[in-house]
């Protein structure tokens, strides 16, 4: 039960964002996807959930070809998938509890009581105890982000797609969220793809790290592999050295 991205191409009008992304996330594995802002990480993630359709290539999740799934099958698959949006995307007309209940209501055999318990449990996990009856507008950015995370994990999906779950959080909360991601994997055997800009987190939580650059995955490997990468682009990115990236880009440009 894995996530496979096979040669995804995607353009918005003349802007070619993805130009052949291929990546596999094996069952029970946590893979981090890193890359420059605007590289197309969020776009990649949306392809996995079927929110965007690739121009070319395909996505296979759970053995199912996502772009060609019927709506019904897609919805069945989506209930196996938790999606943490980069900007939380909480329903702002609902309280936090109602936000979390939305996914739970779609599950069969959950009583109102079960739902309430599950909401409480999920909020506890992201350290938002007692926020049930608040509206998203009454939360800080970081709290909203965690509420969004709670909403994604509430219905215990097999796959979790995190779009920058820790950006904008203080170091302590970041650690809490990192631990949560790891626990989801250990306790529930979740298969996760995490988009992050925080290399520290990436090293900690990931089995493997993939780097998206110029519309392709340019390198995949364990945290150790990435740290020891021979590619100037990857090294420059992880070490935060723009000059090195530029150099690497020029070399690639010459070799290409």
């Amino acid at each position: 039960m894995s996530i496979e991205l096979i040669d995804i191409h995607k353009a918005f009008g003349p802007k070619r964002i993805l130009r052949g992304v291929s990546l596999t996330v094996d069952e029970g594995e946590t893979v981090s996807l890193v890359g420059f802002s605007g590289a197309g990480k969020s776009v990649t993630l949306k392809h996995i959930a079927g929110l965007l359709k690739p121009d070319r290539g395909t996505v296979v999740v759970d053995g199912l070809d996502v772009p060609t799934l019927s709506r019904k099958d897609l919805y069945v698959l989506r209930l196996q998938m938790g999606y943490v949006f980069q900007f939380a995307a909480l329903f702002d007309s609902m309280t936090i509890a109602e936000n979390l209940a939305m996914g739970l209501r779609k599950l069969e055999g959950m009583s109102e009581h079960d739902i309430r318990d599950r909401i409480k449990e999920s909020l506890d996990r992201v350290e938002l105890e007692g926020f049930e009856n608040r509206y998203p507008a009454e939360l800080s950015g970081g709290q909203r982000k965690r509420a969004g995370l709670a909403r994604a994990i509430a219905y215990r999906p097999k796959y979790l797609l995190y779009d920058e779950p820790t950006s904008g959080l203080d170091p302590v909360t970041t650690t809490v969220i990192d631990r949560l991601i790891m626990r989801m994997k250990e306790d529930l055997g979740v298969t996760s793809l995490v988009i992050t800009h925080d290399m520290g987190s990436a090293y900690k939580i990931s089995d493997r790290i993939a780097m998206l650059y110029e519309g392709r995955v340019v390198e995949v490997g364990t945290p150790a592999d990435i740290q020891a990468s021979g590619s100037k682009v990857v090294r420059g990115f992880v070490e935060g050295k723009p000059e090195m990236v530029e150099e690497g880009a020029e070399e690639q440009g010459l070799s290409a």
Binding site: R78, L79, F85, D92, M102
Partner: peptide, 18 residues
């Protein structure tokens, strides 16, 4: 429109709501 630009409509989709 607000729901669309703040990805709430996408969020509905991911929770299997049409």
């Amino acid at each position: 429109g607000t729901m669309r630009v703040s990805e709430q409509i996408d969020a509905l989709e991911t929770m299997a709501y049409n």
